[in-house]
């Protein structure tokens, strides 16, 4: 089974993107495997709506372990089975919470052997008036790390918010060598493109 790992800064909407994508691929319920830094695994079955309520929130570092969902992606006449892995947000600095640090190490461990890396950035944040560069040092590092190995693309999330269009343009300028897809995980737009890119890179 191919692994598609979703990475990015905290609070850019990685979990919501994974859940929206699962919903877009006609999953009513999702079996989420939670794998914490100590290797403990736990499987929970959620309806998508309940999963969004439970796992998505306004605070950074809502996700503190690898959460993986197995979905079937229709391809040609058949279906290809892909494991979507949601990860802990990576930050630029050394985080004070050791649990979060462990979870981030786990994220880096997961992206090394991944088949597809989906890098989520916040377009609304990038387009905000008077903000610095559209993406942080960690985004650049991820692009450098993953961009050289293929199976990598960038998702500019939160396109439903104001300023996002400007942010998308800035992001496209900054990551000019890479594919940047405009997506709104909350508004369920742009998911078709994401699916196509995941399939193409399998």
């Amino acid at each position: 089974m191919k692994r598609c790992v979703v990475v990015g800064k905290p609070n850019v909407g990685k979990t919501l993107l994974v859940l929206s994508l699962a919903e877009y691929l006609r999953a009513r319920t999702v079996d989420i495997t939670f794998c914490d830094p100590y290797g403990r695994r736990q499987l929970k079955t959620y309806a998508i709506g309940a999963a969004v309520l439970d796992l998505v929130g306004p605070h950074p570092h809502q996700t503190r372990c690898l959460q993986s969902i197995v979905v079937g992606v229709p391809a040609g006449k058949g279906r290809r089975v892909v494991e979507l892995v949601d990860t802990t947000g990576l930050v630029d600095y050394i985080h004070k919470d050791s649990q979060v640090r462990k979870a981030m190490a786990q994220t880096l461990e997961a992206i090394r052997p991944a088949d597809v890396i989906v890098h989520v950035v916040d377009a609304a944040e990038a387009g905000r008036e008077g903000s610095g560069p559209p993406a942080g040092a960690i985004d650049r590092q991820i692009a450098d790390f993953a961009g050289s190995r293929g199976g990598y693309f960038i998702v500019a999330n939160k396109m439903d918010l104001p300023d996002a269009a400007r942010g998308l343009a800035r992001l496209q300028r900054m990551f000019s060598g890479y594919t940047v897809l405009p997506v709104s995980a909350a508004g369920r737009t742009g998911l078709r493109e994401v699916k196509r890119h995941v399939l193409r890179n399998l």
């Binding site: 004070k96 090394r112 040092a137 790390f145």
Partner: peptide
């Protein structure tokens, strides 16, 4: 990274 000696940015740089 786990022990807080490295930030994720630095860790990724080294891993690269």
């Amino acid at each position: 990274l786990e022990e807080g000696r490295l930030s994720p940015v630095e860790a990724l740089e080294v891993l690269k």
